[in-house]
């Protein structure tokens, strides 16, 4: 009987902890969003954050996108050749990249790079009392540290996704024309014909949400880190895991809402 009660108690404690964390995350997100709109503003910090999240993430996002486009072209060719539908490769590459792979891959890369960096930076500031020091110097850490990063995530991510979309399609184009012998002009025409405004817009809408989620995860876990170097490491891992899972889950949710219905 005691063993059963222990199991129930453990599950209950886990559920309560989960609810508490979800609530804390929601409050943190709302507070962060409010601070984006209320003065004072810190344009220099926003510029620094967008440089770190956007510009410095560009190489890894670009490489991921271009290789993803190349792989899709190759794999599509292998499958479509069985049904003599190779001409659809340009369409498949363009739609796959803009609807899904651009935002999702950029999101995952950004979570691993920028999300981790944010969690580590804020976590280090927390365990070395720098965040407390900010408060003693009449500065709100949510406004000074969190709001510029959230805004940078929201702004940087769509830009990265546009670049990822272009490079992903370029990757497919390179493989299709150089290796598979497609006509370049026809490929471009097919790609443009396949794309509708809604495809790109939805990808960018996903990017805005993903950018916010990644910055939120990094800031939330870093801001609440405890216990020295181990705590910072743990916060960094949690930030990347949470951002990656939420990116994939929200990707499905948004696709379901906007495409199926």
């Amino acid at each position: 009987m005691n063993a059963i009660l222990n199991v129930v108690a453990t599950i209950g404690r886990g559920a309560i902890a989960c609810c508490r964390s979800a609530g804390a995350l929601a409050i943190f997100a709302v507070e962060g969003l409010i601070h984006i709109f209320l003065p004072p503003y810190y344009p220099r910090l926003f510029g620094r954050a967008i440089f770190g999240m956007g510009f410095l993430s560009l190489p890894v996002v670009a490489l991921t996108a271009i290789f993803a486009g190349m792989v899709i072209a190759l794999q599509s060719y292998t499958g479509f050749a069985r049904y003599a539908a190779q001409s659809q490769i340009a369409t498949i590459v363009a739609l796959s990249v803009t609807r899904e792979l651009g935002p999702v891959l950029a999101g995952l890369m950004m979570a691993g790079r920028a999300g981790a960096a944010m969690a580590a930076e804020l976590g280090t500031m927390r365990v070395t009392d720098q965040i407390d020091a900010l408060q003693t110097l009449s500065t709100k850490p949510m406004k000074y540290l969190v709001a510029p990063r959230l805004l940078a995530g929201i702004v940087a991510m769509p830009i990265l996704v546009i670049i990822a979309d272009i490079l992903g399609v370029l990757g497919g184009f390179i493989v299709s024309t150089v290796k598979l012998g497609f006509n370049g002009q026809t490929y471009i025409q097919d790609s443009l014909a396949a794309l509708h405004t809604g495809d790109v817009t939805l990808g960018l809408a996903k990017a805005v949400v993903f950018g916010f989620i990644i910055a939120l995860s990094g800031c939330f876990h870093g801001y609440r880190s405890r216990g020295g170097a181990e705590g910072v490491g743990s916060a960094t891992t949690s930030a990347v895991v949470m951002a990656s899972v939420l990116v994939l889950a929200l990707d499905y949710g948004m696709t379901e809402v906007f495409f199926t219905r």
Partner: peptide, 26 residues
Amino acid sequence: GMLFQNGALFDSMTVRDNVAFGLIAR
């Protein structure tokens, strides 16, 4: 005003910016 045990200096700023921080913020 508070002097923290480990200093808690902002490592992303220069020493001058650290000292000037409260003057600008407050």
